[in-house]
Computed example of a mutant assay.
Amino acid sequence: MLEPTPQVLAFDVFGTVVDWHGSIVREVRAAYPQVDADGFALAWREGYRPAMARVARGELGWTRIDDLHRLILDDIAPRFGLGDLGEDERAHLNRVWHRLDPWPDVVAALHRLRTRFTLCTLSNGNIGLLADMAKRAGLPWDCILSAEVFRAYKPDPATYLGVASTFDLQPSRVMLVAAHHDDLEGARACGLRTAYIERPLEFGAARPKDVSPRAGNDLHCRDFAELADKLGA
């Protein structure tokens, strides 16, 4: 068992908890069969970091992820033959991010982990998005924390240290669980414990991720079930 034992497990959400790529592909294929759904999902996600960088540089004021997703959607829609979508259709499509499905191992393992740890999100997604997602998918969070709470996007230290402050804990009593090494590096730099989760199909079967272990993480797990095993839940 890790020493000191973490009290709070904070979870990255997009890609770690939920399958954003597969979920978007399924919904776009059903609604717009003429669209390259795989390319559309990837293009939408590729706009994510540049959009957040505009906020970080001050080009945009504080902007929720829902609104950044809409800016990206409006930009890419014409490239995929969706430039004529009306406002109601655009608004509904933009909320696909509220309807993402969890990976198959997630829900049961979270219930196991919740018997021993406090579980919270630490996502760049906004609170309304994360709450809708949790309600739909049955994600048993004790608390929903978001970049929206801290007015800073990961990997800003304010996000990681904000979790520890919220629960009045030393950073070492918080563990970030994520499928992204840059996120985990940011957490470690702030004194948090870290667990890497393999999500080789995050970007789809045609673009498998390298999920080999890297030094520095406290745990490296195939999925959430293995995380629960290793943490004794």
Rank of each mutant, 00 (worst) to 15 (best):
T5A: 15
Q7G: 10
L9N: 03
A10S: 12
A10R: 01
F11K: 12
F11Y: 10
D12F: 03
D12N: 10
T16N: 11
T16P: 10
V18D: 03
V18S: 09
V18I: 15
D19T: 11
G22T: 14
S23P: 06
I24H: 12
E27C: 01
E27Q: 15
R29H: 11
A31T: 14
Y32M: 02
P33D: 07
P33Y: 10
Q34H: 15
Q34N: 08
Q34D: 13
V35T: 07
V35M: 08
R45H: 11
E46G: 01
G47W: 13
M52D: 00
R54C: 07
R57T: 11
G58W: 12
G58D: 11
G58C: 12
E59R: 09
E59D: 15
L60R: 06
W62A: 13
W62S: 12
T63A: 02
T63K: 06
D66M: 11
L68C: 07
R70C: 01
L71R: 15
I72G: 05
L73P: 02
D75A: 14
A77T: 12
P78S: 10
R79P: 00
F80C: 09
G83F: 07
E87W: 03
D88G: 08
H92Y: 03
L93T: 10
H98I: 00
H98T: 08
R99Q: 14
R99W: 08
D101R: 14
D101A: 15
P102D: 10
P102V: 15
W103H: 13
P104K: 09
P104G: 11
A108L: 01
A108W: 04
R112P: 06
L113N: 05
R116H: 14
F117L: 00
T118R: 03
C120N: 03
C120M: 00
T121I: 06
T121A: 06
L122D: 03
S123V: 01
G128C: 01
D132W: 01
R136G: 09
L139K: 04
W141N: 06
D142W: 01
C143V: 14
I144F: 02
A147W: 09
F150Y: 14
Y153T: 01
Y153I: 07
K154I: 00
D156M: 04
D156K: 11
P157D: 12
P157H: 04
A158S: 09
A158R: 13
T159A: 15
Y160G: 04
Y160S: 03
G162F: 07
F167H: 05
F167V: 13
F167T: 14
D168I: 08
L169E: 12
Q170L: 15
P171C: 09
V174A: 10
V174Y: 14
L176I: 09
A178G: 02
H181T: 08
L184A: 05
C190T: 06
L192C: 04
T194P: 04
I197Y: 06
R199G: 02
P200H: 01
L201R: 14
L201W: 12
G204H: 08
A205H: 02
A205P: 02
A206V: 03
A206R: 13
R207T: 02
R207E: 02
D210A: 05
D210E: 06
D210N: 12
R214E: 10
A215V: 05
N217L: 02
R222V: 15
F224C: 06
F224P: 04
A225Y: 04
L227G: 05
L231K: 05
L231P: 11
G232F: 05
G232R: 08
A233R: 11
A233Q: 05
